[in-house]
Each structure stands twice: as C-alpha cells, then as structure tokens.
Simulated assay, not measured.
Amino acid sequence: MTIARGGKAIYGAPLGILMLEARFPRIPGDMGNAGTWPFPVLYRVVRGASPERVVLQGARGLLPDFIAAAQDMIALGAEAITTNCGFLSLFQAELAEALGVPVATSSLMQVPWVQATLPPGKRVGCVTVSRSTLTPAHLRGAGVPEDLPVEGTESGREFFRVLIKAEKDDMDVALAEADILEAGRRLVERHPEVGAIVLECTNMPPYAAALREALGLPVYDVYSMVSWFHAGLRPQRFAVP
C-alpha cells in the first residue's frame, strides 16, 4: 500500500525565486521567465523592490519584505530560496538565518568555486549590471574577494537603461547583447589575467553563450548556479542494472 504524505500546499516545485518588481521583457534565459527552467519553480514578487531601489539604492529597508515573501513560498512548499538579483547578496546571511532553509541569493556566490578551477595566475572576472554600485559589502555577502575584477553595463545603450532605469517597457535584444559583449571585452582588456567570467545579473543568461564565443572563456551565470542548487534538492535518479 502506498501512503501519500501531505503538509504542503504545492508539490513538485521545491525552489522558490524572490522576484523584484519590474515590467521589462523577460526573454527566454532570463531568470524571471518560467520557461527558462527545465524544472518547476515558485515565484513571489516583492512589492516595492524595484531594480533601481535594489541595485542603485542598496535595497534599504527591504529586508523584512524579502523575508516575508520567502516565508510565504516556504509555507506553500518551497524547500530552498534564491533571488532574481545578484545585488541581494547583501541579505545572504540574514535570509539564511531567518528562513531555516538553504538560500542562494546571488550568482556571485559561484566566484570562489570557479576560481578553484583555474590554473595559477588566472582569476575570475565579473560582468555586472552596475559596476558603480557593486560595493565591497555585496562581494563580502557572497564570499567574494573585494579585489574581484569587475566591469558594468552603465555606459551601454540598452541593457542598463531598460532594466535598471526603467526608461521603457520594451527592449532591443541585439543592443542589450552588444552591451554585455562590450562590458566583457573591457573586462578582459583591463584585466588580461581573467580566465573565466561570472555574470552577476540574473537577466544576463540569454547572452552568456555569445559572450563565451566572443571571448573564448568559460562563462557562468545564475542559470548555472540555480541548476546546481536545484540538483541537490532533487538529485537525479539512475536505474540500477
């Protein structure tokens, strides 16, 4: 006899994603596009947590809102929590303490893992949406060295002004990709020791393959991190001969 156990409202989606409140297009590959993931996920939008407020203003005053939204998803059935902004590494310790489940706030958390794979003399570099506001506190929150080579997209034509400044609701995808590629090229020109790149922004995975092709370097992003994170929640079952 098989006994089905209850206790949750939603089953089959162990990962909860805390979303910023935004209206820009979330194309395939974007963390906020549910079709990006090969497994079901839960989403919860944190009202008032705009990209500008989180990225440019340090997410001041928003920690209780993120905790409450995550607790709601855990009550529904989430077994682990991640977020859709790498700048929320500021809240990594606080969320992990408050929620009592595994928490991975930022793609930046991959930096130490990737660094361990590189040969001597090579370093991880980072492409972020906003170099000017990615502070040592953000890096410390993710367990990243404060001298991490970083390049941002603020000087681009499309990505920053659509995603962070919310100047319009549509986006020229080709221009957005060009902004990411230009930031990556500046990064390796200024830091030739860079041997792999971690993309901070959760909206950058659609452009990771183009960046890998352009620079010839491994590129990691929130897709690679969340795929790893989820793998521990639902390990693959293999048929035993």
Rank of each mutant, 00 (worst) to 15 (best):
A104E: 09
A104P: 00
A104K: 07
T105Y: 08
S106N: 12
S106G: 11
S106I: 09
S107L: 08
S107M: 11
S107Y: 06
L108Y: 12
L108H: 13
L108S: 12
M109Q: 15
M109A: 15
Q110T: 10
Q110K: 10
V111T: 08
P112V: 09
P112F: 14
W113L: 15
W113T: 12
V114Y: 12
V114I: 15
V114K: 09
V114C: 08
Q115L: 06
Q115F: 07
Q115Y: 03
A116V: 04
A116C: 08
A116W: 14
T117Q: 15
T117P: 01
T117E: 12
T117I: 04
T117D: 05
L118T: 10
L118M: 13
P119Y: 13
P120L: 07
P120A: 14
K122L: 11
K122G: 01
R123T: 15
R123F: 09
V124K: 05
G125C: 06
G125W: 11
G125F: 05
C126Y: 01
C126W: 00
V127N: 03
V127M: 10
V127E: 10
V127T: 10
V127W: 02
T128D: 03
T128P: 01
V129C: 09
V129E: 04
V129R: 07
R131K: 15
R131V: 02
S132L: 04
T133M: 09
T133Y: 11
T133K: 13
L134H: 13
L134E: 11
T135A: 03
T135K: 08
T135M: 06
P136M: 08
P136T: 06
P136R: 07
A137H: 13
A137N: 10
H138P: 00
L139W: 05
R140E: 15
G141S: 08
G141D: 05
G141N: 06
A142C: 07
A142K: 05
A142T: 02
G143A: 02
G143N: 05
G143Q: 06
V144Y: 09
V144W: 05
V144T: 04
P145E: 09
P145Y: 13
E146W: 03
D147H: 13
D147C: 02
D147L: 04
L148C: 06
P149R: 03
P149L: 03
P149Q: 08
P149D: 07
E151P: 00
E151K: 04
E151I: 00
E151L: 01
E151R: 02
E151S: 15
T153I: 10
T153W: 03
E154R: 09
E154F: 11
S155V: 00
S155E: 15
S155C: 00
R157W: 07
R157Q: 14
R157P: 00
R157S: 12
E158C: 03
E158T: 04
F159H: 12
F159K: 00
F159W: 07
F159E: 01
F159A: 06
